[in-house]
Simulated assay, not measured.
Amino acid sequence: MSLLMRHDGAVTTSWHDFETAQPAFAETVTTRFAAFRHHVLATLRADGAPRTSGIETNFKLGELWLGSMPGARKADDLRRDPRFALSANPGPGTGMGGGDVRIAGFARWVDDPATMARFADAVSPPEPFDLFRVELTEVVRTTVDEAAGEIILTTWRPGHPALRVQRRS
Rank of each mutant, 00 (worst) to 15 (best):
E27F: 08
E27C: 12
T28N: 12
T28R: 15
T28F: 14
V29N: 02
V29I: 07
V29Q: 00
T30F: 04
T30S: 12
T30L: 09
T30Q: 08
T31V: 10
R32M: 05
R32W: 09
R32I: 07
F33K: 04
F33G: 01
F33D: 03
A34M: 07
A34T: 07
A34L: 10
A34V: 11
A35R: 04
F36I: 06
F36K: 12
F36Q: 14
R37I: 07
R37L: 09
H38L: 10
H38P: 02
H38I: 11
H38Y: 13
H39Q: 06
V40W: 06
V40I: 10
L41S: 00
L41R: 01
L41N: 02
A42D: 04
A42T: 12
T43H: 03
T43A: 07
T43Y: 04
T43W: 09
L44S: 11
L44F: 09
L44M: 11
R45L: 11
R45F: 03
A46I: 03
D47F: 01
D47Q: 00
D47R: 02
G48K: 04
G48Y: 04
G48N: 07
G48F: 04
A49Q: 10
A49W: 12
P50T: 10
R51C: 08
R51N: 13
R51D: 14
T52E: 14
T52M: 15
T52Y: 15
T52I: 15
S53Y: 09
S53M: 10
S53I: 12
S53Q: 11
G54T: 15
G54V: 14
G54P: 06
G54C: 12
I55F: 05
E56H: 15
E56Y: 12
T57W: 03
T57P: 03
T57V: 15
T57A: 07
T57I: 13
T57L: 12
N58E: 08
N58G: 07
F59V: 03
F59D: 01
F59C: 05
F59H: 03
K60N: 06
K60H: 10
L61P: 01
L61R: 01
L61D: 01
L61V: 00
L61Q: 02
L61M: 00
G62F: 04
G62A: 06
G62Q: 06
